[in-house]
Design a protein around this nucleic acid. Structure first.
Lengths: 110, 110
DNA sequence: AATATTAATCGTAATATTGCAATAGATTAA
DNA sequence: TTAATCTATTGCAATATTACGATTAATATT
């Protein structure tokens, strides 16, 4: 099959999975970290920064953009990318709620 | 190719990607949420709780176990699973650091 | 011992992902 | 206009993931 049965899960569960999926590749993690690190926006130097071919980087950027975590702005022949702050914050809320589920109440049964 | 070039990324980036990848499927999210919700440990009723076949659940459990986020304990014919608290906390530290990268300093350039 | 119960593994089909060469599109410079 | 530069898209090959039926393994019950 190779096809995830999204319909049997809640919207929240699917949302968490979608965000996680996009973080599930080190290139996308590296792209995001670089966008956070650099003060000004970053264009095609992501290709130099990360050691992948230009079409590959472009594809990863597309996925990040599709989820709304980054935005791109055309500047001459190059495109300036940066973190979409509002959406990043919203994503963080969802993910943090998932990660911070309460561990304290249960005793260790295993 | 379908093969991630892990060698060109840092250990941290690969670690974040691995954790995220395991959260990148709603069934695994649902399993973890259920393990958090139930006081006592949970065995094969995950198959009933989530609408997937037993081998599929078993496979997802295996991945979660492989990353160390859950542990399983044989109890008679059934197996009792629960969150691996120490490892979950360690994972949370890594993921939170990634999610909480500073947004405040940069002005919106896009 | 024979049977039932539960979970793991194997095998396989369908689909998704990753990566890149080649190409196309868009903008700037000469 | 032509050439140069940068990014997106297309097409494809290799690999990974998802899901499940069939089977196996292990323990419990009778």
């Amino acid at each position: 099959m190779g096809l995830t049965k999204t319909e049997i899960f809640t919207d929240k569960q699917n949302e968490i999975a979608l965000f996680s999926k996009v973080f599930g590749h080190p290139a996308r993690v590296a792209i995001l970290q670089h966008l956070f690190k650099i003060d000004s926006c970053v264009c095609g130097d992501l290709v130099n920064e990360i050691g992948l071919a230009q079409p590959t980087i472009s594809q990863h950027l597309k996925e990040l953009k599709h989820l709304g975590l980054i935005k791109g702005n055309v500047e001459g022949t190059s495109v300036c990318y940066c973190i979409h702050k509002e959406n990043w914050t919203a994503m963080k809320t969802v993910m943090t709620e998932f990660l911070n589920q309460d561990l304290t109440q249960k005793e260790d049964c295993c």
